[in-house]
Amino acid sequence: MGQSKRCKPHLEDVWLNSYIKMNNEKIMELRKIANEIRKESLIMIHKAQSGHPGGSLSEADILSALFFYKLKINPKNPDWEERDRFILSKGHASPAYYAALAMKGFFGKKELESYRKINGLLQGHPELKIPGVDYAGGSLGQGVSVANGIALAGKIDKKSYKVYVLIGDGESQEGIVWEASMSAAFYKLDNLIYILDKNQVQQTGTTKEVMDLGNVAEKWKSFGFNVIEINGHDMLQIIDALDKACSLKEKPTMIIANTIKGKGVSFMELNHKFHGKAPNDEELKKAMEELKLD
């Protein structure tokens, strides 16, 4: 993706800072990891012949940046009290999440084969028993609300951890997202960072067709959030936004990541049919070839 969607002027400065802070190699590494996450996700979904490819592909870059750049976590001690928390509120996009957790070392990569299988560790939607999972998201909107409680508890206990919540744009049609946002601002939860995977597509069509969310940036701003808008497939913009979000005080932050559902696989991109459909053998093969090129 080009830089055309970078629409916040301040990012220019952050951009330069980031170049100093981060070397190209790190960016390249994070992009490579994102690509691996995409591949692993599709292999898992193909093997299970069940799962959600579209949202896994759109969030892969964000997860790479979170798990391999930003999150203060320890795979050897998943319940470490001081750890940053991450909630995948759009829990159906679990394949990419599981891939990231495995690659980070929370469990063996072999476990990825248990995805959606009976007696398997990796359930269709995240469960608390999975090492590294802070909340068992699934039913849309609920993780956003749970994040409030974790952030509030962090405030009471004067902990320095941050709480990151990945939300879908379709998910944001749920009223609880707005109940939760209202209270996050009310309680000045500056340790709480939402990331909107604004991939534009949901199960039965585009979000514009199903229930247009309107101007989400203005909506969250008016709810009392800092809002940062980025291209959610541009690694540098993602890490810049995450760094900036961590430095902001008094308000919770929303990072609106403009993404493409099914990103990286041409026939899945912006195709709602691949919201919750597994690729067949031929489609997987084609997808793997396309992802090899990255």
Partner: peptide
Amino acid sequence: GTAAGFALSGK
């Protein structure tokens, strides 16, 4: 939901 977050944090 918020109560759940508290419980997950030992409250």
